[in-house]
């Protein structure tokens, strides 16, 4: 029997961190694991690093009784303790982000709100770019950050037209970066960079514009913060605790609709309208998470 140690989402799929399996070689043990834990596990296995008694292993390596194989997916951070640390720092970051949005929304005038958004989008872009770098890509991080700043200024000055302009700018800045710096000329680096820049700039511009137009009278931003915050909290809980009938994605979607409706009731807004907004948010949250997962790990 060989001990297989599992980390991150492979551990979640298998429902255990440690399993004993039969096999003469690394490949045989892994195929026994595939047979036991199914297709989702098998696809996760493709991008995972395999360690045999603390050394990198290849499929043909022979294994014997009492050996230990560790399967470490790229997102786990390398070991059990690291994975645990990353989970906590992600929670803290999410909470800080939420408080930042609430605080800057309460502050009068658009300046604090804009500054908070830029900070949040910058942190997110740098984080997702770092994950791409982990996978050997070279995202145009500085170009993305430049695009975010340009988006804030252009949306503040020109409103809706500025938001449209900032989308054009975010594509142009990232592409132009490749003209100046030769190592950013690979399509596999430019494409995700443009995508990150588009999401970050339109996110910044869109929330700025919504606050300018719909706050403080119509509470669209407060309801956004409530719905998305609730959805993130529910998703964070469901990622850690397995609930019957509710996976993280449907939990996120339900929480977004619920948050939106509760927000509309609290601030006495049009409930029917905000049910639709909640449904839209639910869809965007689920799609966005899948998109993020593609960018971070190359898989949905």
């Amino acid at each position: 029997m060989v001990t297989l140690r599992l980390f991150a989402h492979l551990r979640e799929i298998a429902g255990t961190a440690r399993v004993e399996l039969e096999g003469e070689t690394v490949a045989e043990v892994l195929s026994a694991a595939r047979a036991r834990f199914g297709d989702e596990f098998a696809s996760g296995l493709q991008s995972a690093a395999i360690w045999h008694n603390g050394e990198t292993a290849s499929p043909a390596d022979a294994v014997k009784e009492g050996d230990e194989l560790a399967i470490i997916p790229p997102v786990s951070g390398g070991s059990g303790t690291m994975a645990q640390g990353m989970v906590d720092s992600a929670l803290v970051a999410g909470l800080v982000g939420l408080l930042l949005l609430i605080g800057t929304n309460l502050a009068p005038g658009p300046a604090w709100w804009a500054a908070g958004l830029v900070l949040l989008m910058a942190v997110w872009s740098v984080d997702i770019a770092a994950r791409l770098e982990d996978r050997g890509r070279e995202p145009v991080t500085l170009g993305i950050l430049t695009a975010i700043v340009v988006a804030v200024i252009s949306t503040h000055v020109y409103g809706g037209v500025g938001l449209g302009f900032s989308l054009y700018i975010s594509v142009a800045v990232v592409l132009a970066w490749g003209v100046v710096v030769s190592r950013y000329r690979q399509l596999t680096d430019v494409a995700p960079s443009v995508l990150i820049a588009l999401v970050a700039t339109s996110g910044t511009g869109s929330l700025m514009l919504t606050r300018t137009i719909y706050e403080p009278d119509q509470h669209a931003i407060s309801i956004f913060i409530l719905a998305v915050g609730l959805a993130a909290v529910v998703a964070a809980i469901l990622d850690r605790v397995r609930a019957p009938l509710l996976d993280p994605y449907s939990g996120t979607a339900l929480a977004a609709v619920l948050g939106s409706v509760v927000g509309a009731l609290i601030w006495e807004e049009d409930v029917v309208g905000f049910v639709l907004v909640g449904l839209g948010l639910a869809l965007f949250l689920v799609v966005g998470r899948s998109l993020g997962s593609i960018l971070r790990t190359g898989r949905v």
Binding site: I213, A236, G280, F284, L285, G292
Partner: peptide, 22 residues
């Protein structure tokens, strides 16, 4: 920060969504 991905995407499309509905 995977949880933020969905939130960022939702943020990006929030203004178009709200302005279409209201």
């Amino acid at each position: 920060l995977g949880l933020l991905d969905g939130a960022m995407f939702a943020a990006a499309l929030y203004y178009p969504l709200v302005s279409v509905i209201f």
